[in-house]
Nucleic acid binder design. Structure first.
Lengths: 234, 234
DNA sequence: AGAAAAAAAGCGAACGTTCGTTATTTTTTA
DNA sequence: TAAAAAATAACGAACGTTCGCTTTTTTTCT
């Protein structure tokens, strides 16, 4: 699977995402005209990501956001009741995006090693596609209340659990080595996160997301796949 | 190398670190009595790490810090001129700690694979020993001015460059495979960071730092070491 | 089709609160 | 007793949010 293939499989344009934000926050968003609301949500979210990438959510003031989005202070508040609620909306939407894509890619009846590759790559590609969302979710989760933070942790645990399940199935099928799969899954998660947490590094090195994803798969397979020498020893 | 061995090699008790902070910030710290200053620095830094772990540096108020450290508002300011300077002191000291340990462990004339293991483990063990520092450095670097942020990026680039150098030397010696060593170094960095960024996960699973470090080495060696099957093909 | 009225969207000043910091006073230490 | 350390109150600035007013858009009426 290449990034271009992935892009053909998911509907995740910024507009589509904002449409979903609008649909799912009807009780919060006080704007009647859907197209106006969506256009302004794009401005707001874009500005949030720009500012927070540079200085973080807490350091971002509503005046910063107003200036950057081009909406006045009063024009923003029909979209969310408070700065804190804005945070919640973004994080919930980000999580839903990740979950939807993951659900789409985690199933399939092909071989374990292909499933593993597909799941790892889907995450990397989605994080490429929605970089600001992923970066924001990682760096700003600490601003949540304890209850909502728990949901974030569960989200990470869930994606790791799927990888563990694939590794276990592959071990039973004789494809993957016996390892501490829970640790392997965590390390894979770290490899995936490296891509979107260190965007500047890969941009500077002119490494494409396909190159990175293939490299990660190669790395993981070296460790996980049963080698010929293993089989010969048996 | 085990974590216990590592601990015997570095002087990094909290007191020793605070003594270095005091020594290196003589023009900022207005307290004459060294032992008093060091004791209070321990309180301040401990409180900073507690609070920022939970809510981040920007969300931490000086009143939070005062309450948590047990020092009054006025009693804190002889230690730093402003909140921003406090940030700078911590990040600089953290960087110096990392650099000192790294310098101690990166040299040696043993085989490339042993050097690689030593360097990777030293970083993981130091991050275990000084978890709050590492977590803080990662999460709060964005609060720095552009110039200081550059120093952080250079610090990460430097440690990766050492790993690249080891991998290249190992390749020349026929020990390591030909790979994109720059990407390998970055992925190793991600594995190291996983340990201290996700402290809750490993604590919950009762994974020791020695177990984690060995697992990472095994993972990396699977990918990097020339295998028997490679040599037989040649 | 155009005007007027109503609804929706947007603006910006002001509110009450909290912030980082300082100056002065008080307390502790030697 | 003097110096050092600590405490406290207050300052000016900035914050998140609200509210009344203004502008724009849509609907209704002729």
């Amino acid at each position: 699977m290449k990034y271009a293939d992935f892009l053909n499989m998911v509907d995740d344009s910024t507009r589509a995402v904002c449409r979903r934000v609008y649909a799912e926050n009807k009780d919060t968003i006080k704007i009647k005209k859907e197209e106006t609301a969506i256009k302004n949500l794009e401005k707001i979210l874009g500005a949030v990501f720009d500012i927070t990438y540079e200085k973080g959510f807490q350091a971002m003031s509503m005046r910063d956001l107003s200036r950057r989005s081009g909406l006045s202070m009063g024009a923003m508040y029909p979209y969310f009741r408070s700065k804190e609620e804005l945070l919640g909306i973004i994080l919930r939407q980000g999580r839903a995006m990740l979950k939807n894509v993951f659900e789409k890619f985690k199933t399939g009846s092909e071989r374990p090693e292909d499933r593993l590759e597909k799941v790892i790559k889907a995450h990397i590609f989605l994080s490429e596609r929605a970089k600001p969302w992923f970066y924001f979710m990682f760096m700003e989760a600490k601003n949540l209340s304890a209850g909502e933070r728990k949901a974030i942790l569960e989200s990470e645990a869930y994606t790791e659990a799927v990888i563990v399940e694939i590794l276990e199935a592959g071990e039973r099928a004789g494809v993957f080595r016996k390892r501490r799969h829970v640790l392997t899954a965590s390390i894979i998660k770290a490899m995936q996160q490296e891509w979107y947490l260190k965007r500047w590094k890969y941009a500077r090195r002119k490494v494409t997301v396909d190159e990175y994803a293939d490299y990660v798969i190669n790395f993981v397979n070296s460790f996980c796949l049963v080698q010929n020498s293993d089989m010969e020893a048996n």
